[in-house]
Design a protein around this nucleic acid. Structure first.
Length: 843
DNA sequence: GAGTTTGAAACT
DNA sequence: CAGTTTCAAACTC
């Protein structure tokens, strides 16, 4: 990390203000915050603003405390800065007051080396490096309580503890750099004043914390006394006199402290996490100089009300805490620009705040570089409504964990095409290594004006059906330059073997396809390549959005379903009583859209797309010697045949266990066209409201139809965002390839929503169905897209299938229409299969 | 990490 | 539509 003075947050405090945020009172504190401004997407102003509205709790005493302490020389007269507001900056009366190591560290940030590393060290660890006073409670408490949400705040507030007529020198002299670089009392008081402006009413929770803190501070005093600390101001006599008075409060404080300690410790964890987080951002910010859309983060900041909200703050802390507990690098290296460790992002925390809290805004928070940002990423253009809707559906009322999960899923499943079998969420890793301005474009994933790209798996960007970004794809030479530039970055990248890295995220490794063909998993998944991809000559980047769009169009023109999910949920059969959710939400309930064509792998290796997607092979597969543990083609056909032979409406109870796949018998014909419809229907915002923004990549016509007919959702999106969704443009929607893999909590709401939606718009489904058929017929890759002809014929002949959305609600509303005949190629074959199975069973 | 195998995608 | 080629992931050593 560059710890040069320019980048040093502390040193920068003496320089000209970084922040231009008008309403914010300029202060060293804000400057400091500004200099902590993190990664790409974060505007310094944002953090400055953040700093201003984030409470910077000073030492707080209630009036009686103040008076008493002052009487007893625990406070000096001038210590009270804002007695009226119960805000007091007091001098620790005791020279033995521990110099806050964190403060020291903060100051040390100005040093050229090890600044961050040191700083990030757990403050607790160093809490003993001073006079050894038993201030640990105070340190922990006030330090943590005051630190609130930002590093700078912590550092500043920590200063309060240190500053004292006698203590200040002692404390600061212990760090010469502190003297040089740290603002002293004026700064502190200024900061305190600034923070004190905060209306405690706005931060009830925090106020409550302040109250607790005051108790702790008092307790601190009495504790110091009780331990016979010699202070410059408390002589033995004074001590004796004061002791009686102070004793009066000890009991009370003791009680308060006990109450406090629990919460304080809790806060401390959060706090540390946040701080580190910000430090990280600082590091990154130093590294990254240009950002695509800095607004992303602080659109978040825009809604300062959100952050002012105590609940949000709480959430932020909580989430940040959890986040860091899990992901924050514990070592210095993380700070020291080991970007690979930067796998957490403030945005995440913020996002969590926004989502987890009662935020009405859904400012998408962008993960800066790296960091399981995918979970964060949410397009603003959609976010508001999305979040609102989510809220209405209970999405926002769940736990943070659930939120995180939901959001990941949401963002991913909605916009991202997961690689088959891949989860939507992942934690980016190693993505930072070569982040640079060139790559920052990939961080334009989000902007308040509805940038079309969203980060997937941290940084994959989903192309949504929107206006192209302003970034014009220039002439070929320009492109070439960009590519070259990008390639230079890529050269530094270690070419991975295989696309999947440890975190489960897919990264492509293309060399010849320029990542503009379906060979490229990223491209096929509808996401931009990550910087961490090891591809060469990659054009699947935001810079070449137009190229990507064009290519996609081209491919879609050949195969409209080329970008449709490869694996689609297996529709519930028309039979009314087979719908055990647990069954049809299992992987086996999904099927590969086109089926595999394996010859040698026996569908037992990941060469097989079905296997890779963790779905059983179906009749659509043309694999040889299928042994797919999730269900072989023979199984499917057997089940199907058996089903038809018994009773069409019979409950499908032939659920077979198998590895992690519970194989529900797939009695309903599994037609790619049907699948396609299902996929498409699930890809549309309308059809998949729970995914909020699932935008179909199916076909232009289909999409347009859907948009026009069901603008309800998309119009919302357009209005909520900036209307980036282009109706006229190719449906370049990046879709999940396995969109079924939703978590349990998603399902219920999903289903409900889907049901509602479908009930509302059956015409759309019909049309979708029709379109699908057309698509199928016209697909140049018919052999892959469409079912076997014989099967297709049967499917089509069996009428209502096309009109059945395959969704549960439809099935509930419409009497079941069991297929008149199985659509398998040969009933004899089925019978053979069945017979052989029966024989086996008999044996 | 290099080389091989595999099957999807693309091409003819 | 079938065969072939290209491609990149998966796999093996």
């Amino acid at each position: 990390m560059d710890c040069s003075p320019e980048t040093n947050p502390v040193a920068a405090t003496s320089s000209s203000p970084v922040s231009s945020s008008p309403p914010v009172q300029e202060s060293p504190f804000s400057n400091f915050l500004s200099n902590l401004t993190p990664i790409n997407t974060v505007k310094s102003e944002s953090y400055t603003q953040l700093g201003t509205f984030l409470p910077t709790p000073p030492v707080v005493f209630t009036s009686p405390h103040i008076d008493l302490l002052r009487e007893n020389s625990f406070l000096e007269r001038n210590d009270i800065v804002e007695a009226g507001s119960n805000v007091v900056v007091y001098k620790e009366c005791n020279t033995n007051i521990v110099q806050n190591p964190s403060f020291e560290k903060e100051v040390q940030l100005s040093s050229a080396s090890g600044c961050i590393d040191e700083y990030l060290a757990d403050p607790k660890v160093d809490c003993t490096n001073s006079a050894g006073l038993h201030l640990k409670p105070a340190n922990d408490v006030s330090q943590l309580l005051r630190s609130g949400i930002t590093v700078s705040k912590e550092s500043n507030t920590e200063v309060h503890e240190v500053i004292d007529g006698s203590t200040k020198n002692e404390a600061l002299t212990s760090s010469s750099q502190a003297e040089e670089n740290m603002p002293s009392r004026e700064l502190i008081e200024s900061t305190t004043n600034q923070s004190s402006v905060k209306n405690s009413d706005e931060l009830p929770r925090f106020s409550s914390v302040k109250g607790k803190e005051s108790a702790i501070n008092v307790d601190l005093v009495s504790q110091a006394q009780s331990q016979g600390q010699n202070t410059s101001k408390s002589s033995g006599d004074q001590y004796a006199e004061q002791n009686a008075t102070v004793q009066l409060y000890e009991d009370l404080n003791e009680r308060k402290r006990k109450v406090l300690e629990g919460s304080v410790k809790e806060v401390s964890q959060h706090h540390r996490g946040i701080r580190r987080h910000l430090q990280f951002e600082t590091a990154v910010a130093h590294k990254s100089t240009t950002f695509g859309n800095n607004e992303s983060l602080w659109s978040l900041t825009h809604d300062t009300a959100n952050l002012r909200s105590p609940s949000n703050l709480t959430n932020l802390r909580t989430l940040a805490s959890s986040h860091f507990d899990n992901k924050a690098p514990s070592g210095p290296q993380a700070v020291s620009c080991d970007t690979s460790q930067l796998s957490f992002c403030p945005h995440d925390s913020v996002r969590s705040v926004l989502t987890g809290g009662n935020s009405s805004t859904s400012a998408p928070i962008h993960s800066g570089i790296g960091l399981h940002l995918n979970s964060v990423s949410k397009s603003t253009s959609m976010s508001s409504d999305v979040f609102s809707s989510r809220k209405s559906t209970g999405y926002l009322s769940t736990t943070d964990q659930m939120l995180d999960h939901d959001i990941k899923k949401d963002s991913s499943s909605s916009f991202i095409s997961g690689v088959p079998g891949e989860n939507y969420s992942c934690v980016g890793d190693g993505q930072q290594e070569s982040q640079s301005a060139a790559d920052t474009s990939s961080f334009t994933f989000y902007s308040t004006d509805g940038m079309p790209y969203l980060p997937c798996d941290s940084l994959h960007h989903i192309l949504v059906d929107q206006q192209p970004v302003s970034c014009e794809v220039g002439d070929a030479s320009q492109d070439a330059n960009k590519v070259e530039e990008s390639n230079q970055l890529s050269q530094t990248r270690k070419r991975r073997k295989g696309a999947e890295i440890s975190d489960g995220c897919k990264r492509c490794n293309c060399r010849k396809s320029k990542c503009l063909k379906l060979y490229c998993e990223c491209f096929a998944a509808g996401v931009f390549c990550l910087d961490s991809c090891a591809c060469e000559n990659c054009y699947n980047k935001p810079e070449f959005e137009d190229t990507v769009f064009d290519t996609r169009q081209q491919i879609e023109s050949r195969n409209p379903l080329a970008f449709a999910p490869k694996v689609v949920k297996h529709e519930i059969d028309s039979l009314p009583n087979i719908t055990e959710e647990a069954d049809w939400m299992t992987p086996s309930s999904a099927r590969h859209k086109r089926g595999c064509n394996c010859k040698k792998s026996k569908c037992l290796k990941k060469y097989c797309e079905c296997y890779q997607a963790n779905v059983g092979c179906s009749g659509a597969c043309r694999c040889d010697g299928c042994q797919n543990p999730c269900g072989t083609k023979a199984d499917q056909e057997y089940n199907r045949a058996e089903k038809w032979e018994t009773h069409p409406a019979e409950k499908l109870d032939t659920i077979k266990g198998g590895n992690d796949c519970i194989k529900a018998a797939n009695i309903n014909p599994y037609s790619p066209s049907w699948e396609g419809l299902c996929a498409i229907s699930n890809l549309t915002p309308l059809s998949h409201p729970c995914s909020s923004m699932k935008v179909s990549s199916a076909s232009s016509s289909l999409r347009n139809t859907k948009i026009s007919q069901s603008h309800l959702q998309s119009s919302k999106l357009q209005s909520s965002g900036t209307g980036r969704f282009k109706v006229g443009r190719s449906p370049v929607i990046f879709t999940p390839q396995v969109y079924e893999s939703k978590g349990p909590y998603q399902l219920s709401s999903d289903d409900a929503s889907c049901e509602r939606t479908y009930d509302d718009a059956p015409e759309i489904l019909k049309e979708a169905s029709y379109t699908t058929k057309v698509v199928k017929a016209s697909s140049p890759n018919q052999k892959r897209v469409s079912p076997p002809q014989s099967r297709a014929k049967k499917v089509h002949s069996s009428s209502p299938r096309g009109l059945r959305s395959g969704r549960k609600f439809i099935l509930q509303a419409v009497p079941s229409f069991p297929p008149l005949s199985p659509y398998t190629d040969s009933k004899d074959a089925i019978n053979d299969t069945r017979n052989s199975r029966k024989d086996n069973n008999n044996i």
